[in-house]
Write a protein that binds this DNA or RNA. Structure first.
Length: 463
RNA sequence: GGCCCCAUCGUCUAGCGGCCUAGGACGUCAGGUUCUCAUCCUGAAAAUCACGAGUUCAAAUCUCGUUGGGGUCACCA
């Protein structure tokens, strides 16, 4: 049974797109193999903890359609799925490690740690804990009973060859001399990421660890833990890191990074996932647009390229446009109504006329409001030229005479005027809609109605 | 800086020893359709496959080195 997971930490305002990306891959891996996709909240950093972040993260994941089988809000056979509710577990395993000699208590103060680090940096050495408490720690139990603050550190043995297999990058080997005696259990009793993931991934029977590349360098620590516990290693796959245009790690300073931002901007979740799927992976037939279902069927972790791709808003926008265009009119309407407050004021008949015009012109759902401004809050030019005034008058006259208020006849009328005055279409656009371009004019004023159109022209004439 | 990862058009990528004088997509430019704007269609420019050695009859594809980029070095995840 394939079991994958994502471990979001509630320290930001929402899930990061980079995490949405790895979430997609974890989800796909589970779905492809009829496995389970799990969400485990890693809320062990109490200083960066943010109220409400967990709810936001979960709702975003749901909004993108990545359904999960086990998680903090729905439970599951390995509950609880929130690390803060599993504290005794980590303590127990930390103690087991100490008994085995794979970890030790450390009472060093922040001051001493800083000092040691500064000294090492001065000597141009990589900062490492100097194992002071391992070599000087004789009466740890007593000191703890006296109430002294302590942490538990990983005891890394020197000159060991540490290695693991990565599905995307092959074998990765590191010498244990490169690994620091990481803190596993913090003085507040919470585990660090390293203890937390290893214990929970094992306990929750996770088979594939699909996470971002930035974790490669700490994987050797996890390998030491798996070995110390005598646990079987899961399969690792380190996804490429999404980047800013300057190739640095995707960050909020240089890019919108919160998943819900994209939804708020009117991107469709399926377009976003399709775009994300194409980063580091490509369709065997080089198709660009494909369903999630198709992705799940064709996707294979082994095909992921290790290169960190730049997140390109322009291509995402194109993809979104394609998705909008491929939506049925009914579906498009549903999406628009859910997205735009203004849309609720539109009648069914108006919508029916608008939808086909909108389809090829909307890049995001946000465009609905700007494209339909004429129907709600048309802007009147501050002034018009004499010629424009005359055009308005002619239009008024011609329109008034019309019995049938429909696009083709309106267009005939407008064409005559265009010819007569030797002007181009945008002139009429500004007059009739207040904007130099927009949805097709005859259709627009058909939908606007005779009354409103004539009223507007009258307004222009009297300017 | 140490360690680790990576390297094909501006961007996302195809390519897994001969089919490559390198294909597709986005973007850009030009043209067509057209009532503006779009859509749609056609075409063009765009990568000496980072560089240098080697292996081979043959290398974008394999090996090594160089350079460049990225990640990581916390009681954060």
């Amino acid at each position: 049974m394939v079991r994958t997971r994502i471990p979001p930490s509630p320290t930001g305002q929402d899930i990061h797109v980079g995490n949405l990306y790895t979430a997609l891959m974890n989800w796909a891996q589970a779905r492809k193999n009829n496995g389970k996709f799990i969400i485990r909240i890693e809320d062990t950093d109490r200083t960066r903890f943010q109220e409400g972040a967990e709810e936001k993260i979960l709702s975003s994941i749901k909004a993108f359609g990545l359904d999960y089988d086990e998680g903090p809000d729905i439970g599951g056979p390995f509950a609880p799925y929130r690390q803060s509710e599993r504290l005794p577990l980590y303590k127990k395993y930390a103690e087991e490690l100490i008994e085995k000699g794979a970890a030790y208590y450390c009472f060093c103060t922040k001051e001493r740690l800083d000092e040691v680090r500064a000294q090492q940096q001065k000597e141009k050495k990589t900062p490492r804990y100097d194992k002071y408490c391992l070599t000087h720690g004789t009466n740890a139990k007593e000191r703890i009973e006296k109430g002294e603050s302590y942490v538990v550190r990983l005891n890394v043995l020197p000159d060991k060859k540490l290695w693991f297999k990565d599905l995307i990058r092959g074998q990765i080997i590191v010498n244990s001399n490169e690994v620091d005696d990481q803190v596993l259990l913090k003085s507040d009793g919470y585990p660090t990421y390293h203890l937390g993931v290893v214990v929970d991934d094992h306990l929750m029977e996770i088979t594939h660890i699909i996470r971002a590349e930035e974790w490669i360098s700490s994987t050797p620590k996890h390998i030491i833990l798996y070995e110390a516990f005598g646990w079987e290693q899961p399969i690792f796959a380190h996804m490429p890191i999404l980047r800013n245009p300057d190739k640095s790690k995707l960050s909020k300073r240089k890019n919108p990074v919160w998943a819900s931002w994209y939804l708020e901007q009117g991107f469709l979740p399926e377009a976003m996932l399709n775009y994300l799927a194409l980063l580091g992976w490509s369709h065997p037939e080089e198709k660009e647009i494909f369903s999630l279902e198709e992705f799940v069927r064709l996707f294979d972790l082994k095909d992921i390229k290790p290169v960190g791709p730049i997140f390109d808003l322009v291509k995402l926008t194109w993809m979104n446009q394609q998705y909008i265009q491929n939506l049925s009119e009914e579906e498009l309407k549903t999406r628009i109504v859910a997205f735009s407050k203004r849309a609720q004021e539109f009648s069914d008949t108006l919508f029916a006329g608008l939808l086909p015009l909108l389809k090829t012109r909307m890049e995001t759902l946000k465009d609905f409001d700007t494209l339909t401004e004429v129907f709600v809050a048309p802007s009147i030019p501050e002034s018009v030229t004499e010629q424009e005034k005359q055009i308005a008058q002619d239009l008024q006259k011609a329109f008034e005479k019309l019995d049938a208020w429909e696009a083709t006849t309106l267009f005939t009328v407008m064409k005559e005027i265009l010819l007569q005055y030797k002007v181009r279409m945008p002139v009429l656009y500004v007059l009739l809609t207040g904007k130099p371009k927009g949805l097709p004019l005859p259709e627009t004023i058909t939908l606007l109605g005779k009354e409103k159109t004539l009223a507007r022209l009258q307004q222009l004439i009297t300017l």
